[in-house]
Design a protein around this nucleic acid. Structure first.
Lengths: 257, 257
DNA sequence: CACGCCGTTGCGTATTTTGCAACGGCAGTA
DNA sequence: TACTGCCGTTGCAAAATACGCAACGGCGTG
């Protein structure tokens, strides 16, 4: 269904990776140059693609504009953004905001800390289920069927000695997270990076997002990083209230006994 | 041309503003519900749209992912290269492009002018913090902690009578550069060579690179060289725009009073 | 309990889009 | 300078594609 839309999307994805010539795009789509050209022209009218100085096709700024507009519209993001800014200023570390989408946890905001720590995360990308603290904290409080789906689709790829590599272990981790109310990433993806994460609740009391704090182990070891959890929790609570949470714990937050 | 692509784009723009029902979207497009639905389904396959919990259609995270991939992929070099070529052709002088990397400023592109001027710079090399105009202009606009680091590691070796030899003097120089928006090298490394340099901004508005114009004093003295600054600035602005800069000045560009 | 709203699906038609082929600009080469 | 090949662009006719219609079903509401 809707062949040209598929082709248009494929073009956009290809151009995002790196700008290309008309001919290349036509080859990748297995269509004639003329067909590719007309799709590009249609996209160009909306500034979804643009021609670079050297005649290549690249993603247009109308496209990125739409993306940012959409991100602004995400109320969790809007509610959390001032808090991210404040906490980066106070703590100096990188903060992430991630939202539950289906059984994935997707980064919707990110604010870099003062140190020139470059994290591989990117807004719009899916957080690793078995390593990212923000994914773990959100899924820990998610409905069981979502958690099952997430467990089933997780890669469990071993990145470091501390990486959780089995569904059983991750299930136990989820239980612990629910009990104590926050999650950690103890160098489970990159062994020199630690994170702590806390849940954010929507108006129904269900956990809809997560907020995490990231630091280099060398700069602030996990034990010290944990001392910021009260501050992180405070921010998360305020954000939750702004989303309409009445302050009562959601049903899913009860410790599993 | 390409009707369905137009409709698909319109849907995306509408959903970005705020998530909508199928019916609303169909009305806005003036098409049947089934038509709108099929377009949405096609977009959904690529995660360009998603269904929210309450059944509304919203921009999907595949879309934002593509947008950020595109922004990440735009490297300064690719954006600037055609401008280097054009300006070398127009002005005949050597041009340099340098990128901020940590607290170093590294040459990432260079194009030799018509005169056989042998410059010591090399792509991949670190520009001298206290002499190279391109290093000074980038560091002047960099975050304070980066600037401090650069000051701390600079050699302040005296090459010529005009070389800046103290951190205090260089700090003052940085302040001046921020105020006027461009930097010079008044024979500070080799006394027969002058340069002017302007900043290039990334999509966040932060200065990510610098563009410089170099000439032999004998051929074009500094006063004449400065007359090319508007042209250089124009190129830098165009490059910045191609990097996703929206035209607003970054926070760090305010004159320090 | 019944009604109406909204999203979903099958199908035949015709509108849209596709592929072809020829044109023209540009650049590198003889 | 003239030639040649490459790449992007345009007109047109055929046909594949996407469209609207109408009926179905789920769900909340009166």
């Amino acid at each position: 269904m809707s062949q040209s839309v598929h082709r248009a999307v494929t073009i956009l994805v290809a151009c995002a990776a790196n700008p290309r010539r008309l001919g290349e795009l036509a080859d990748e789509l297995a269509v004639h140059k003329s067909t590719a050209l007309r799709l590009l022209q249609a996209l160009e009218e909306h500034d979804f693609v643009r021609r670079t100085e050297d005649g290549l096709w690249a993603i247009g700024f109308g496209f990125t504009d739409v993306a940012f507009t959409a991100l602004d519209g995400i109320d969790v993001r809007a509610a959390a953004h001032p808090w991210l800014r404040r906490m980066v200023r106070e703590l100096g570390h990188t903060l992430h905001l991630a939202e539950l989408s289906g059984s994935d946890v997707v980064y919707v905001d990110k604010m870099e800390g003062h140190g020139a720590v470059r994290m591989k995360s990117r807004v719009g990308a899916v957080a690793q289920t078995h390593t990212a603290s923000v994914a773990k904290v959100v899924l820990a409080f998610a409905p069981p069927e979502l958690r099952e789906a997430a467990l089933a689709s997780a890669s469990f790829q071993k990145f470091t000695p501390t990486t959780i590599t089995t569904p059983a272990a991750l299930t136990r981790e989820f239980d612990e997270i629910r009990e104590r109310g926050w999650a950690v990433d103890d160098g489970e993806f990159e062994d020199y990076i630690n994170c702590v994460a806390v849940p954010i609740r929507g108006h129904t009391g269900a956990v809809v997002a997560g907020l995490s704090l990231t630091a280099l182990r060398a700069i602030e070891p996990l034990a010290e990083l944990k001392q910021h959890i009260p501050r992180l929790t405070h921010a998360a609570t305020q954000i939750s209230r702004e989303l309409g949470w009445d302050g009562h714990k959601g049903l899913d937050s009860q410790p599993v006994t």
